[in-house]
Simulated assay, not measured.
Amino acid sequence: MNPYIKNSIQIIVSTLAFCSITAQAESQFSLGGGVISTSSPYAGTDNKTLVLPMITYEGERLSLRGLSLDYKLLEDDGVNWSLVLEPGDNFDTSDSDLAAIKALNDRKLSLYAGTQVSYSAGFGKITASATHDVIGHGDGAKFKTNYSYPIKLSKQLMLVPSVGVELNSSDISNYYYGVAQGESSTYAPYKLSSTVNYNAGLFLMYYINKNWNANAMFNYKQLDSDIEDSPIIDTDYSTTFMMSVNYRF
């Protein structure tokens, strides 16, 4: 699966995680489809527009949101503690138009396992997670925190702004954005330390009726300056725009 799909799914997963709480669905399954336009920071890559299915399952303890699993260990008075399994990054170098990028090694898919804690109250929702790559591609740790606040504009319309911070260990940063010794005859070796990325997003949900809802989402990620300085990166940000329709059983 190419990096555009993976990056888009990651954002959709986090969005659906919040919407599963605010939607107050009476059943556990939701099916739908979405159109996504997303950019990649790697040099020589273009924006992609994709059509993707969306499947969610909300059980008493186990939840499936896209390609992410969440097993709830504790739920008490707005506090949730869970174990999580979620996909990470990847980059197929053949997606670039530049020969120098195509000659690099692919950055393969990572899979992160770890724990997540969230707290929901009148001021919004705060989420923090700590995960580690269990496949051994990035072979490092990732720490994320996010704040979102639902604003009910009308009986049928809800707006959810959010901001977040993502800390990647040096192993992850180097694997995805660095250039290893001897990897390229064009680019000099480039090594990174740990990196910090910032996210800001808006999610809009419209309840058509009891079962159907339509959604729109925009997400902006500001990349760490060390990532921007990498010779294989040509922008300091990435964006994703999504529109979807979902049916809850």
Score class of each variant (00 low, 15 high):
Pro3Phe: 00
Tyr4Asp: 03
Ile12Trp: 02
Ile12Asp: 05
Thr15Asn: 12
Gln24Cys: 09
Leu31Asn: 10
Leu31Pro: 13
Gly32Val: 08
Ile36Asn: 00
Ile36Asp: 01
Ser39Phe: 00
Ser39Pro: 02
Ser40Trp: 03
Ser40Gly: 08
Ala43Tyr: 04
Thr45Cys: 02
Asp46Cys: 03
Lys48His: 06
Leu52Pro: 02
Met54Asp: 03
Ile55Glu: 02
Tyr57Ile: 09
Arg61Cys: 09
Leu62Ile: 11
Leu67Glu: 07
Leu73Trp: 13
Glu75Leu: 11
Glu75Cys: 11
Asp76Gln: 13
Asn80Val: 07
Trp81Gly: 02
Asp92Thr: 10
Ala100Glu: 15
Ala103Ile: 11
Ala103Glu: 13
Leu104Asp: 02
Thr115Gly: 08
Gln116Ile: 07
Gly122Gln: 11
Gly122Asp: 11
Gly124Thr: 08
Ala130Glu: 04
Ile135Val: 13
Ile135Gln: 05
His137Ile: 04
Asp139Val: 02
Ala141Trp: 05
Tyr149Met: 12
Lys152Leu: 12
Lys152Gly: 08
Lys155Arg: 10
Pro161Lys: 00
Val163Ile: 15
Glu166Gly: 05
Leu167Asp: 04
Asn168Cys: 06
Asp171Pro: 05
Asp171Ile: 01
Ser173Arg: 01
Tyr175Leu: 05
Gly178Arg: 01
Gln181Met: 08
Glu183Lys: 06
Ser185Met: 07
Ser185Thr: 10
Tyr187His: 06
Ala188Met: 06
Tyr190Pro: 03
Leu192Ala: 01
Ser193Ala: 08
Ser194Arg: 12
Ser194Thr: 12
Thr195Ala: 02
Thr195Ser: 07
Asn197Lys: 07
Asn197Gln: 09
Tyr198Asp: 00
Leu202Asp: 14
Leu202Thr: 12
Tyr206Lys: 10
Ala214His: 09
Ala216Val: 08
Phe218Thr: 03
Asp226Leu: 08
Ile232Val: 15
Ile232Glu: 01
Met243Asn: 04
Asn246Cys: 08
Asn246Gln: 15
